[in-house]
């Protein structure tokens, strides 16, 4: 028998923290989006691992939906990045302070 499922959850938590760190500390809008992808991916890993733990494929169905959401999110996010870059010629997240009301 293979490794216990605990390993997968710890790996998922570690990947999630790396992604969260990227979202918080990086200032490049595109890299922030990539770190968001990392976080979603780690959540997917947890979904699939729990699906294996309970021998229930509902987790995998959820994971497919989550991938769909991730694809939609990336498409909209990158469109926003292109719009911001066309407007300000910069990818620094700090320029988004102009959104302050």
């Amino acid at each position: 028998m293979g490794v216990s499922l605990e390993h997968y959850f710890v790996l998922s938590a570690v990947l999630f923290v790396i992604g969260a760190y990227g979202v918080i500390a990086r200032r490049n809008l595109i890299v922030v989006l990539m770190s968001l992808e990392l976080m979603l991916n780690s959540a997917n890993l947890a979904f699939v691992a729990f699906s294996r733990l309970h021998n229930d494929m509902a987790g995998q169905v959820f994971m497919i939906m989550s991938i769909t959401v991730a694809a939609a999110e990336v498409a909209v996010g990158l469109a926003l990045v292109v719009a911001v870059y066309a407007h300000r010629e910069s990818l620094d997240v700090d320029i988004l302070k102009i959104l302050k009301g």
């Binding site: 390993h7 790996l11 570690v14 990947l15 790396i18 890299v31 770190s35 990392l38």
Partner: peptide, 12 residues
């Protein structure tokens, strides 16, 4: 697992 963590660290 090591490869995925390494890739994630390289991303950021």
């Amino acid at each position: 697992a090591a490869l995925s963590v390494a890739g994630a660290l390289l991303v950021i």
